[in-house]
Write a protein that binds this DNA or RNA. Structure first.
Lengths: 189, 189
DNA sequence: TTGATTTTTTACCATATGGTAACGACTTTA
DNA sequence: TAAAGTCGTTACCATATGGTAAAAAATCAA
């Protein structure tokens, strides 16, 4: 079942038989998080690669007494402090469940070890490439769009994000205060 | 000689014999660009992976009648429209030489083909991962630092950037106008 | 339900940055 | 050398967003 999700997610890149994905899935462990539960605390090194089956999570960076959200993750996407997973260094990033969430996770060392097998290697390569493209898109938006335009783009990308994620988190992702987001939302009518 | 540069750049990840790097280097072609020469025009798909031996380049995105610089590349670093190289789709990104630059390049299809060999695969994997980490750092700076702080960080990262790169390019990289950068520079004393 | 806590909204003023314009310095071209 | 263009600087005002504060609304806990 997990093998099927993985196969469906990555078949467009690499057509491997379901057995190969099942073998990969052997190393995956299901784990559930409550809303607001910390998946990876700041100051630590990321030990797992997570994949969200149901629910959502955010990658946060604490700044003074506030925080900014660097990214959201919803169903069928990876969710971890990927920078720390790659470098094995501790970071100040914090991963938090934003809803009650069902995930599967795989130990970092197993993730890297499986990277030497064909399907594991494709997952690692495509995860790195997709993560880069995603980040570059975010950088382009931050450099070329207004806060309001970024908000509209985010709503298009995740159509029900307003119903699922607190405004303060969306505001911090957009790089503005909750007050400014409130102003933007209420001006638009 | 190129093989040695490649080996030096990637040996920390993967200790391959110089012969393996020489084999990889066989597919590389040297090419020189004049200052302000367009390496990859907007609206096209990236055909090459470039590596800068000497000089510098910038990745630009045109916005109305202005442009923003998404990244600088100097000696011993990759430089291309990596997003387009990966997706094979045309993008609006433009790569421009900012000084007279000596580069080596490798055809996209050869790059991907060599990715199936051990050293090629390590280059592709590590390039993707390093590009992601780099982009996430930039995103963090854009979300948590002021324009002045970002300028100081950039100066630390590339100590002689003020002497090598036009202020207007630095300003656009920082997400501000040249006038604002001028104000920041002259206020700091 | 009731009270406590958190989140969102609104209002006020402050500030960083944008946009336009003009000027001088520098660079390129003829 | 002169002319033309580009670039960096400065000044002015405009604007988007920040910061503080407090009320209103929503959520959570007892």
């Amino acid at each position: 079942m997990l093998a099927e999700i993985l196969k469906k997610s990555f078949d467009k890149y690499f057509n491997a038989p379901i057995e190969a994905w099942k073998e990969f899935a052997e190393f995956c462990e299901p784990i559930t998080f409550e809303k607001d539960q910390i998946i990876k605390p700041q100051g630590t090194s990321e030990k797992y690669f997570y994949f969200i089956i149901k629910g959502s999570a955010g990658i946060f960076l604490w700044k003074e007494n506030n925080f900014v959200c660097l990214d959201f993750a919803f169903e069928n996407s990876a969710c971890c402090d990927y920078m720390s997973l790659l470098t094995k260094e501790p970071t100040e990033l914090e991963v938090v469940a934003l809803e009650k969430s069902e995930t599967i996770r795989i130990l970092r060392d197993n993730f890297h070890r499986l990277g030497r097998k064909s399907v594991g290697q494709i997952i690692m390569q495509k995860t790195a490439e997709a993560s880069f493209v995603e980040k570059q898109q975010q950088q382009i938006e931050l450099l070329t769009k207004t806060a309001e335009e970024r908000y509209r783009i985010l709503q298009t990308k995740f159509p029900n994000i307003d119903q699922r994620i607190a405004q303060k988190h969306i505001a911090s992702y957009l790089g503005i205060t909750p007050q400014s987001l409130s102003r933007i939302r209420n001006a638009a009518n």
